[in-house]
Amino acid sequence: MRRLGVIGAGGMAETVFSALAEALPAPLEAVSVLVPPGSADKGEALLARFGAALAASRSVRTDRATFLADAPEAVAECAGHGAVREHGDAVLAAGIDLIVISVGALADDATLARLEAAAAAGGVRLVLPAGAVGGLDALGAAKLSGLEEVTYTGRKPPLAWRGTAAERLLDLAALTEATIFFEGTAREAATQFPQNANVAAAVALAGAGLDSTRVRLVADPGAQRNLHEVSVRSAAANFTIQLEGRPSPSNPKTSLTAGYSVAREVLNRVRKVAI
């Protein structure tokens, strides 16, 4: 792969470009960034920061037609659920692989079905990186043996849940011990707590599905950072994987791991050995 498209120019895209500029075996031929008209200067500044170490040709586009005319061989979405819904099917239908990090958008059956149909029409793939969580390769393998139970637990410091439905259920500032405030399916979690939708949906789509994957959300005053835990019981193996996520310096609501996960997918398309 020599030509890459990226949707978005925020903290996620910055992490992706930083990783690529350092780890690419050679600069790409071209990188195009798609942003809303009001964000063109932001996109230009981001590309200028990484310069020729990233790609020989670097362009910012504010309309999708021009972006697709740049002929990227893959497009990485780094702009949120709205961008998936707005641009996803057009990218796929144009015959371009789409790497979606905002996996929570696919908790909506209609969106997932539309993107699958567009991928089939374009003869390409919709690719879902693991993002902020780990163990999805082991989960996908265990799925082939038969899954018995999959549970995702999201644990954050109480004040990290501000601005979510948790505020209506708990006095977050007064908590003195870990408290589970949600237990349900991945689909319910993605709907009620969209801030955790991407992780819950990624675990569900890799494993038991949106309606059979259990989710627990916890406010824990003893937690220093966001903790993601995936527990699996299957015919092949039982395992639990826990990650303590660090936030992006430029956008604390974005996990650093998620951006590096996108970069890893791109690098696997460039390197001679993919792992």
Rank of each mutant, 00 (worst) to 15 (best):
A71C: 08
A223V: 12
G131T: 09
S57C: 06
T151E: 12
V100L: 01
V35A: 08
V91D: 01
I99V: 15
K272G: 15
V60K: 02
S231G: 01
T185Q: 08
L34C: 13
E22D: 14
P194R: 08
H81Y: 12
S255H: 09
E77A: 09
G82H: 05
V127E: 11
A178T: 06
A21S: 15
D137E: 01
D137V: 14
F50M: 11
V232D: 12
A105K: 08
S59R: 13
E116H: 11
E149D: 03
G38Q: 04
T111M: 07
S234Q: 01
L159S: 04
R168W: 00
L139N: 03
A235V: 14
N198I: 03
P72H: 05
K42N: 11
G259K: 12
R64F: 07
A206T: 07
A120F: 09
G146R: 00
D70N: 07
V6L: 13
A23Q: 07
E29F: 06
A121C: 04
G163H: 08
I96L: 02
L98E: 09
A237L: 14
M1A: 14
S212V: 03
P252K: 03
L28T: 04
Q242H: 00
G259I: 10
K42L: 06
S250E: 01
L92K: 14
P25I: 09
G51S: 11
L139P: 10
E183F: 00
A236Q: 07
G8Q: 02
A23S: 02
T254N: 08
A21I: 02
D63N: 12
G104N: 03
L159C: 00
I241G: 05
A223N: 03
R2L: 08
G146L: 02
E29T: 11
K156D: 00
A48K: 14
